[in-house]
Design a protein around this nucleic acid. Structure first.
Lengths: 232, 232
DNA sequence: TAATTTTATATGTAGGACATGTTTTAAATA
DNA sequence: TATTTAAAACATGTCCTACATATAAAATTA
């Protein structure tokens, strides 16, 4: 066990101010649309320069907590929990461990998503999925070209996220794509055996149409078997 | 249908610079530990003031993409995909829709997580879970006090995330807690009938011990039934 | 009254100055 | 010479002032 020396509170001024402003907003139950004190007032009240306040606000602006208009000042907005992630979800920036975690997350989401799909599926959704599957089946490239197959794979699974009716989930999936791409490439390089589960996209659509959430969940688990087998 | 006038690219300088720096890092395959050009150089090369560069770097610093030391300059770090979310995951800041999405996300994760649990479970984990369950069963407060029951609920489910062996997932769950708390309070206020699934924590532990990932998944789905029933 | 112009103001951008704490270099001491 | 100590150099951190820009609000005009 490490005898960690001491963490000490050596957070930057900007970070402290950011926290103070966030606390201020929470404690005072600021609602979307309310207007914030202006930068100079914040700076004076906090006893720091306007620069520091601006850096803090810039961070909050990035997270979608506040929005600012030229003369009107700054107003509260509903933060976007994904905006921060969006910028850095890139294989060139993330570490191996993070990538692995995210890849696993995708598997977890798709298996766990079943219930939402059955609650919110519409006939048009099934038809659209059917159309994707047929296009995939009739595409001769699909047998030979890995890139083509990957494209259908993505199109199909992306549609499922959209069907979930959960916008956050849906956006999250679109961010996952680069990581997904990267991991698939690694896989195809390493093993050179693009094993596929015994359950196809076609089967999944059929289950969505006439099956149950429970069946779909297990079929999806089966469909993803090659990926699960890679875990340890 | 809206005839949206024009979005136009009216992004702030800070945002542009942030993007440019991120692109710069990606394109040049910067690795963790590499050092960035100094602020003044960035400012000169980009043709903006040092203030702008600093605001951009402040954002990247928040996301964990870079770290800075007094004289050494700034170095690349492995970004933390959750650091942005962490600050704003608060019922007082999030909107109703986001809260709903997050709550659903929790359900999806816990059902989908089963496979990871069975891949990574250890005997000590089972024993620890068993201990939690027994403590819960022997606590007389559990029958009457909703707060106590909620505490056990959280302790149990939190441990599952820890067991998943996925640090990202685990941290994410700890952030979810405030939202979870909030939603549970809303539920108990509205219906006043804390319905519980037919599968108890004890059952789940037993399934973890002697069952399969498939059984656990369905049992967890059952355990969460009251929450799923609230969805539409 | 309605349309137009002007004004006031809060944010956006720029650039200079100094503080702070490291790292390197140089000086001083043994 | 080797080691310790002090000085200088330097990048980030903080503060300040000034001005640009856009727009809500006020004043003016038709």
């Amino acid at each position: 066990m490490a005898s960690k020396i001491k963490p000490i509170k050596s957070v930057s001024l900007v970070e402290q101010v950011e926290q103070r402003i966030l606390e201020f907003l929470k404690e005072n139950r600021f609602k979307s649309g309310d207007s914030l004190p202006k930068e100079i007032e914040l700076a004076e009240n906090l006893g720091v320069s306007r620069n520091i306040v601006r850096e803090s606000l810039s961070r909050l602006r990035m997270l979608g907590v506040v929005e600012s208009k030229k003369r009107k000042g700054m107003i509260i907005a509903e933060p976007d929990i994904l905006s921060g992630i969006e910028r850095i979800m890139d294989p060139d920036l993330l570490g191996e461990e993070a990538m692995q975690h995210i890849f696993e997350l995708r598997l977890v989401l798709e298996v766990g998503m079943s219930e939402l799909l059955f609650i919110r599926k519409k006939d048009s959704d099934i038809n659209n999925l059917q159309e994707i599957v047929e296009r995939e089946a009739n595409d001769p490239l699909c047998k030979t070209d890995l890139k083509t197959r990957l494209a259908y794979e993505i199109e199909f699974h992306s549609y499922l996220y959209k069907m979930s009716g959960n916008g956050t989930l849906n956006r999250f999936q679109s961010m996952l794509l680069p990581v997904f791409h990267y991991m698939m490439q690694q896989e195809s390089k390493a093993a050179a055996k693009p094993v596929r589960g015994t359950i196809s996209h076609k089967d999944l659509v059929e289950t969505l149409r006439v099956g149950t959430a429970y069946e779909f969940r297990e079929n999806m688990r089966n469909h993803l078997t090659p990926h699960f087998n890679k875990l340890s």
